[in-house]
Design a protein around this nucleic acid. Structure first.
Length: 551
RNA sequence: GACCUGUUGGUGAAGUGGUUUAACACGCUGCCCUCUCAAGGCAGUAUUCAUGGGUUCGAAACCCAUACAGGUUACCA
């Protein structure tokens, strides 16, 4: 076809496209940003629920944009209308909000580079396609699905590369007359790339995370515009990221093998290519097969994003975990800089794992514990209350009625250099501190007690009668030691072990009886702190309760 | 089949040719501290970096093969 014929063809195919490339290039000018600012984007497709992997890439997008004073925008990639899920878009924006991964621009946010939803951008895509046809970089293809299927089978048989390229690209050099004939027959068609590549040439790509990679040049006449007039991912990616001036495309590494196509499109369209950062998928070692596999929503509950909200895993703790996956040196930094926030850490692509990152539940739990250990009683109270309001109204009510007490309980052993590290999620708090609220404690009726020992209540009654709650911890312990000795218990374990027949037990045993009666369990945070908060009256009430149940 | 990528303890990993007898963290085990638990302290947990060759005075690091794993090869993203 001559250029004139191609122009005629382009107008025939896209009679409604009024603008040209220049119009859009001017409409979306270069962003006015500092020199090294990164422009990143999260481009989910509303085809299902959001999972941890999605969150991870969005988190990385956010973090890199933020620390370079750049832009992180949200773009909905809904070119496949068939796979759309109802409520999919709301789900995406909702999850981002819930997990505090906040775009600075994009769908549902402000921005000058929209529309940020691909289904509203067909006119733009088609403008560029039209231009490609004129430049002989694209052509309409009328092959039927059956024909393509047959080619595929033949290629599989011959063990050659699969796809429409070279001799298989039947419609590549159709004359204008032939195209018109197909069109007159009302045949459906797609637009394919007229790939100029030669697989004998290699292209070298430098990925920000994976480093240098070599590929044979892309030579397949890939479909770029589907028969319904919407673009295929690859094409939309190139157009959008150019027009929206993305600098770094951070995405899952299932895309690396498409990079040769993408850079070919960038070249053909005369765009400056983006930098690619392909992140490894989150994997897990399958317990049954022992193989490493991609994490799955069905098999791994923690992969679904709901898990975190329902179980009360703090958002910041999840951010912490995502940060440890994003940069392998983050964890050590965080441990060594207890007073710093995630924002203070300098993320870098070369500290990003190249291979698959395995999900480590233990590590998440530990991170959560560390997170809680760094929160004081007031903070734990406020955050837990907020969670409980959504997931356990009854507890929320109780919490509100006992604010001061709870803040004190949550603060026990929190202020020293080695803060308590026992809670890993909001949903733990209610059970862990059930002794803090009379209502819960009385309902519990010592059911948590995993011991069938006989506890000497009279001894405790005697002890509590003279209990002084205005002492220091050390004074208190001296006191209970003396009390123990007076009542036939050893002052410490060593003495007891030396002469087990001489004593009924040691101070530890006396404390255990006290602890059991007061908290309903054999393990608890510092006993004296608990007693001080409860006060004598409530302690006595608990002694009565214990007697009622066990006598 | 073809093309990419990866493979370091139970786990996440550091490591880019020479104080690496492999950092750090999680987990696990033991001991210590201690009124219990948590925390903390100490010690143990890979004589070896998937396997086999090669390059080198010297390799976990560089090269080649093999094995295994993951990804792509859609009018899905």
């Amino acid at each position: 076809m001559t250029k004139e014929e191609r122009i005629e063809l382009a107008n025939l195919l896209f009679p409604n496209i009024k603008h040209d490339r220049d119009y859009y290039e001017k409409k979306y000018p270069k962003r006015d940003l500092p020199k090294d600012a990164m422009v990143t984007r999260y481009g989910p497709s509303p085809t299902g629920s959001v999972h941890l992997g999605n969150l991870l890439s969005a988190f990385a997008d956010m973090v890199y944009a933020k620390q370079s004073n750049g832009v992180f925008y949200l773009r909905i990639e809904d070119t496949d209308q068939k796979r759309m899920v109802e409520g999919g878009i709301e789900n995406i924006t909702g999850v981002l909000k819930d997990f505090e991964i906040t775009p600075t621009e994009g769908y549902g946010y402000e921005g000058e580079y929209g529309p940020y939803i691909q289904s509203e951008r067909n006119e733009i895509y088609q403008t560029y396609i039209k231009d490609m046809i004129i430049n002989d970089y694209a052509y309409p293809c009328f092959m039927t699905e059956e024909e393509i299927q047959a080619i595929r089978e033949e290629q599989e048989l011959n063990k050659t590369k699969i796809g429409i390229y070279g001799i298989y690209a039947a419609d590549r050099d159709l004359s204008l007359e032939e195209v018109k004939k197909h069109l007159d027959n009302n045949e459906e068609y797609v637009i394919r790339l007229k790939s100029p590549g030669n697989p004998k040439n290699t292209v070298e790509i430098t990925d920000c995370i994976k480093g240098k990679m070599k590929f044979p040049e892309h030579d397949t006449d890939s479909i770029i515009l589907k028969k319904d007039g919407s673009p295929v991912y690859h094409f939309a990616h190139v157009i959008d990221d150019h027009l929206m001036h993305t600098t770094h495309v951070i995405r899952g590494d299932e895309w690396v093998s498409s990079v040769p196509l993408h850079i070919q499109l960038f070249e053909l369209l005369g765009f400056e290519p983006v930098k690619y950062c392909h992140i490894a998928p989150i994997t897990i070692k399958d317990k049954e097969t022992g193989n490493i596999r991609k994490i799955s929503k069905r098999k791994d509950p923690f992969f679904g994003v709901k898990y975190y909200e329902e179980n009360g895993i703090p958002i910041e703790a999840l951010h912490l975990y995502l940060a440890t996956i994003t940069n392998t040196n983050f964890e050590e930094w965080y441990l060594n800089n207890p007073e710093k926030a995630i924002e203070d850490f300098k993320f870098s692509f070369d500290k990003q794992a190249v291979g698959g990152t395995s999900f480590d539940e233990n590590k998440l739990v530990n991170l959560c514990k560390t997170y809680f250990s760094r929160k004081n009683g007031k903070e734990v109270y406020a955050e837990t209350l907020e969670w409980a309001k959504k997931h356990d109204e009854e507890y929320a009510k109780l919490m509100e009625d006992n604010k001061e007490d709870l803040e004190k309980f949550f603060n026990i052993e929190k202020e020293g250099p080695r803060p308590r590290k026992d809670i890993s999620k909001y949903s733990d708090v209610k059970e862990e501190f059930s002794y803090a609220l009379d209502e819960l404690f009385e309902k519990e009726k010592y059911s948590k007690l995993d011991s069938d020992k006989d506890y000497d209540v009279e001894l405790i009654e005697k002890y509590v009668a003279n209990l002084n709650l205005d002492q220091t911890n050390e004074e208190w312990f001296e006191g209970i030691k003396n009390f123990s000795i007076e009542n036939g218990y050893a002052a410490n374990n060593k003495e007891y072990k030396a002469n087990p027949d001489k004593y009924k037990g040691n101070v530890g045993d006396v404390c255990e009886i006290l602890r059991v009666i007061i908290t309903g369990r054999r393990n608890s945070p510092d006993l004296y702190s608990i007693m001080q908060i409860l006060g004598k009256e409530r302690i006595n009430k608990r002694i009565e309760l214990f007697k009622k149940i066990y006598k």
